[in-house]
């Protein structure tokens, strides 16, 4: 029976994103296999990819969620830096206060929880500005981006905050069985949870509906404002976790870390088939887009005569290429 196809809720018809992206991923892998086989397909390379990917991958999910709701979140990097900045300052302060170095683990845990709370509050601010005050998402998050990084700058006077407890970096670099890095584990866990929320929960359906038509959502009795606020809060939480990971990798916090990630996350979301108009996109496709992005990024790094800035050029071309490709494949 055809109706049984219903069991997979979000397998949108005529959606070629998955296939396209798998092809792209395969092309990159094959190209690298031919050009730099030994270097690319090495344990070290894959492990370093596994360390790099989570920090912007989580922000990409945040961006994707905001875009599905029909908006955009330009403040993800600002939220990440602000929450890691506050976590860093707390860790340093508290670590100096406590006499017993064995207790430092609790300091770290508390600081991380506070950071996540900060991310939640930042997201809450975004959500309120968008839903209750009615500022268009692009402007609201543009403003809050300035605000969040402004607060980070004020807190740090524009400097990098170093001298974190060494244990923190150690935790960040921990790898399960010496293979799977902790950040990657966190990333996978969060990816599964977000995916589960979108596909298996009432919130998921509501989110797509609000993204597709706010007015109809209101007339269907959905709490539109609540859903928007929840979504931006979720984006805030994801960004703050990403900020914590970034802090552990760089062993410091600074107000202007990771500024290139806004564009990258937008690129990943679009590559992953998230429609900028809202209402469409799913996490597994975004996941594949993140992988493609990481493959591509690592591949470029293997050609040392490519200046790092060429990445910018390539990201721009990929973004426009994907947009044009989507346009053409849809019009057929």
């Amino acid at each position: 029976m055809k109706h049984d196809a219903l069991s997979s809720r979000k397998l949108q018809k005529n959606d070629n994103t998955l296939l396209n992206n798998l092809v792209v991923a395969a092309v990159i892998l094959i190209t690298m296999a031919i050009l730099k086989s030994s270097k690319f397909f090495s344990f070290t390379n894959f492990q370093s990819m596994a360390y790099q990917l989570p920090q912007y991958g989580l922000m990409a999910f945040a961006m994707a969620l905001a875009m599905i709701s029909g908006g955009i979140d330009l403040s993800i990097v600002g939220m990440a830096n602000l929450s890691s900045m506050i976590a860093a300052l707390m860790m340093i302060k508290l670590a100096n206060l406590i006499p017993n170095q064995n207790l430092i683990i609790y300091v770290i845990i508390i600081s991380c929880l506070i950071a996540i709370l900060i991310g939640l509050l930042c997201g809450l601010l975004n959500g309120l500005l968008i839903s209750k005050i009615g500022i268009p998402p692009i402007l609201a998050t543009l403003g809050s981006m300035q605000l969040f990084s402004g607060v980070s700058i004020i807190l740090s006077k524009g400097n990098a905050i170093n001298r974190l407890p060494p244990l923190y970096a150690k935790i960040g670099n921990y790898a399960l069985f010496n293979i799977v890095p902790l950040p990657l584990l966190i990333f996978i866990l969060l990816a599964l949870s977000v995916s589960f929320m979108l596909n298996k929960s009432a919130y998921g359906i509501k989110l797509y509906m609000v993204g597709s038509n706010t007015k109809a959502a209101k007339f269907s009795g959905l709490h539109v404002d609540k859903i928007i606020i929840q979504t931006y809060c979720l984006a805030g939480i994801l960004s703050s976790v990403s900020g914590l990971i970034m802090m552990s990798r760089l062993n410091s916090a600074k107000s202007d870390y990771g500024q290139q990630y806004t564009l990258q996350c937008l690129l990943i979301a679009i590559l992953g088939g998230v429609n900028p108009q809202g209402g469409h996109g799913n996490i597994s496709n975004v996941m594949i887009a993140i992988l493609i992005f990481q493959f591509l990024s690592s591949s470029i790094n293997m050609f040392p005569y490519f200046s790092n800035f060429y990445k910018l050029l390539i990201w721009g071309i990929v973004l426009l290429g994907v947009m044009i490709w989507n346009k053409y494949s849809k019009s057929r």
């Binding site: 200046s307 990445k311 910018l312 050029l313 973004l319 044009i324 346009k327």
Partner: peptide, 24 residues
């Protein structure tokens, strides 16, 4: 011509122009 959203197009070209400036 392609009728793409202006924000995203210009984000892309911004990246390209900066890439040319700083890279090339």
């Amino acid at each position: 011509i392609f009728n793409l959203p202006a924000l995203i197009v210009t984000l892309g070209t911004q990246s390209i122009f900066m890439g040319i400036l700083q890279g090339a």
